[in-house]
């Protein structure tokens, strides 16, 4: 899927540039975006290091598995493939909670941590598991109680009631999340996961290996 979308975006850009004479714009778009991408990634190093450290403390203190057990009824419904006491569930909950509170600098590291935990359960390490796609569906719908950035934009533009969009955004984001998660569940059978004999067999002890250091 990404192969086609990725190539199509670039190919269309070059074809359009040929007709509209915007080749310079394409070059600028490519160069600037490459720079932005690296800045975003490097900008994550500090906060990523901090949260991965704190999360490891939370894990060792038994907090993550406690959280997972507490919300077992919901997680069983959304992530039936993930064992209830697996650290993945705790990490998913932490990440979604951070998103809801608008703590975007904590939400990304926690979400990546959740993906790493899900990757431990994943048989084919290059293919997304059903649980990963469901978690991504939750994440891309960006559930948030207070859309702080947008309130700021409206207030800066001189709005008399910039917080009017809180309720409407909440309805929008919840409907989007329900639609995305439902679609993830309904579509999963049409995008089959590779059959067991296609994937390399799991080496012994793989279940406990941490994907974060397996480079």
């Amino acid at each position: 899927m990404l192969n086609y979308i990725w190539f199509a975006l670039m190919a269309i850009a070059v074809i359009v540039a040929a007709f509209k004479g915007t080749a310079a714009g394409v070059t600028k778009g490519a160069v600037d975006s490459a720079k932005t991408a690296v800045e975003i990634s490097l900008g994550l190093i500090g906060i990523m290091t901090l949260w991965l450290g704190i999360m490891r403390v939370a894990e060792k203190a038994g907090l993550i598995s406690m959280l997972a057990r507490l919300l077992r009824p919901i997680s069983r419904l959304l992530f039936p493939e993930v064992p209830g006491d697996h650290p993945a569930i705790g990490a998913i909950i932490m990440s979604v909670a951070a998103n809801m509170l608008g703590l975007s600098n904590a939400a990304t590291p926690l979400g990546i941590k959740a993906m790493e935990e899900l990757q431990e359960l994943n048989r084919d390490k290059e293919t997304a598991s059903n649980a990963m796609v469901t978690f991504m569906a939750l994440n891309t719908s960006g559930i948030q109680f207070i859309p702080a950035t947008m309130i700021g934009v409206l207030a800066a533009a001189g709005s008399k009631n910039p917080t009017a969009i809180i309720s409407t955004s909440l309805i929008g984001t919840l409907c989007g999340a329900v639609a995305a998660v439902t679609s993830a569940k309904l579509l999963q059978r049409f995008f089959p996961y590779p059959a067991a004999n296609d994937a390399p067999p799991l080496p012994p002890g793989e279940g406990s290996a941490r994907t974060g250091v397996s480079e």
Partner: peptide, 25 residues
Amino acid sequence: VYFGAIGVKRTRHAIPAGLIGDFVA
């Protein structure tokens, strides 16, 4: 970001599901 962090290249239905969610939102 998320699939990149764990090296997943085949995202299966993640993009269709996300697009449906965005459309509804």
